[in-house]
Design a protein around this nucleic acid. Structure first.
Length: 471
RNA sequence: GGCGCCUUGGCGGAGUAGUUACGCAGCGGUCUGCAAAACCGUGUACAGGGGUGCAAAUCCCCUAGGUGCCUCCA
């Protein structure tokens, strides 16, 4: 499998540490607000990554974090983080806020038919691991403590700038207002923050770093601590949003590799952002469309998934209702095609068609294995479908058909193989309608057709005969 | 100010040198009891200018526009 690796800025052959196994860490949500479609784009990208790895028969050990503490709003000295801020806004405790949005996120994952990570880890449940990692960094001389917390000294980690290709001098020169004068370099980041003295935080823990003040972990340390706990000091693949390259992932690499002396991750994958009306999605722009908004507009989440697949994860995608409608139409065609498998007039596919399925499946697999080229993979599927809708409409039969649908569901996360046959009664109704048409009793024929429509069964009269589809 | 990325037909979106991408929508036609579908046909798409090559959407340079990061961010 080829993966575009941010570490090398090139498409590299994927070679796991252990043959046949793949360890994967993907950055999960910060649960202080509802996830918007941009978040789901990225999470669906990694869902496809896992599906592709599994289709290639890798045993995937996948960890995703839930950031439920410590994600600082800024470097300001106010000791405020997103959870605490969200809590203030909603009149709840930070714990309640985290729980609410965590549940919402998990429901979203399920609704989108996303795979479950092997481990879904909460930052608040790994405070001890984070403290231990910070202590290791202290012992190795990578940290310094100032009034508001323990910081990582990025100047002590050689190559800090190389991952993101940062120019630290320019970073310094061009840096905006520097809030924290005690920081040695602008790029230094908090490993641990002490609680503010003027108010009580909801989330805070005892720690060995200060003068007895309680505190909470910085954002970056959780990913390193949890990734290494579950996946080891070196992991195969680390994936996340493109925005994380210069800060979060640079920091993860610095603190992890400073602590262990080992390469943290061999492959770094970054998903590009999705734009709405030419702008990135952000709270300040008020364009944070949520899954609920899709449902309100009558867009199925499966259509949304297909829409995500229609662009490549590394290109800056566009989100629009028009595109979603196109995806919905495309999905309906795929579903109508999948329904053909119950209406075959032969026991097994003709050899020629069987060969076409085999080559299509190979092409799809190759496209996915080539840095997750989902749009190209869908092209091969569409070509096969239109060929069948054209001349092989009654030949979608046998285990080849079923296996192919299952393969599509496995790699794309669709539900084409799970679409059931219609009932014997419904089949009888179709047959009765055919009789009525034969007798040119159009009124009765139309009544029967309408009857089927009320149970979600549509009919198409084609030169190859009548066939049904679920609408 | 610094560092990147991008610009493909009405819309979305693949494609890193030589084949119809594909999808959605549209248009003309065939077929059809009707709706729908299906089938056939159809659009001089590669931001602009220059360069290299037998050959460029694809490589190089310039220009224009867009956009991302540098600050929390999928």
């Amino acid at each position: 499998m080829q993966l575009y690796n941010t570490l090398t800025r090139s498409s590299d052959e994927f070679i796991p540490l252990q043959a046949g196994k793949a360890t994967l860490y993907t950055c999960g949500p910060t649960v202080y607000d509802y996830a918007h479609v941009g978040h789901w784009f990225t999470y669906l990208r990694w869902d496809i990554l896992v599906r592709t790895l599994r289709a290639l028969e890798y045993d995937v050990n996948w960890v995703m974090n839930i950031t439920d503490v410590g994600h600082l709003v800024s470097d300001a000295d106010d000791g405020e983080d997103k959870l605490e801020k969200g809590a203030q806004r909603e009149g709840k405790t930070a714990w309640e806020v985290a729980e609410h949005y965590t549940q919402d996120f998990l429901q979203g994952m399920q609704a989108l038919n996303m795979l479950q990570p092997t481990e879904l880890t909460k930052a608040t449940e790994h405070i001890a691991e984070q403290i231990a990692l910070i202590q290791t960094l202290q012992q190795k001389g990578y940290t310094y403590t100032i009034d508001d917390g323990v910081y990582f000294d990025t100047s002590k980690f050689e190559g800090y700038a190389s991952f993101a290709r940062l120019d630290l001098d320019d970073l310094q020169a061009g840096a905006r207002v520097e809030y924290n004068k005690q920081k040695r370099q602008p790029s230094d980041f908090a490993l641990w923050k002490f609680s503010p003295t003027d108010h009580q935080r909801d989330m805070e823990w005892d720690n060995p770093f200060g003068d007895g003040r309680k505190g909470f972990p910085g954002w970056h340390i959780e990913c390193s601590a949890m990734a290494m706990k579950y996946l080891g000091e070196t992991i195969d693949i680390h994936a996340g949003g493109i925005d994380h390259i210069p800060v979060h992932h640079s920091n993860e690499i610095a603190q992890s590799e400073a602590a262990t002396g080992q390469r943290f991750a061999n492959y770094w994958l970054h998903g590009n952002h999705v734009m709405v009306n030419g702008e990135k999605i952000s709270k300040s722009l008020g364009n944070g469309i949520r899954l609920q908004d899709l449902a309100d507009k009558g867009v199925s989440l499966e259509a949304f998934r297909l829409h995500v697949l229609e662009s490549h994860y590394r290109s800056q995608s566009k989100f629009s209702w028009e595109s979603l409608e196109a995806a919905q139409n495309r999905l309906q065609d795929l579903q109508a095609w999948a329904d053909l498998r119950w209406q075959a007039k032969v026991d097994k596919m003709p050899q020629e068609l069987d060969d076409l399925f085999r080559s299509s499946r190979q092409n799809i697999a190759d496209a996915l294995a080539n840095d997750l080229n989902t749009p190209l993979a869908l092209m091969y599927l569409s070509k096969l479908v239109s060929h069948m809708m054209d001349i092989e409409i009654t030949s979608f039969a046998g285990t080849s058909a079923e296996d192919f649908l299952k393969y599509l569901d496995a790699v794309f996360g669709l539900t084409l193989s799970k679409r059931p046959d219609i009932t014997p009664e419904q089949k009888q109704t179709i047959s009765d309608r055919e009789d009525a048409r034969e007798a040119r009793d159009w009124q009765k024929a139309d009544e029967l057709r309408d009857l089927l429509l009320t149970s979600g069964i549509g009919l198409r009269d084609t030169p190859h005969g009548v066939y049904w589809y679920r609408s």
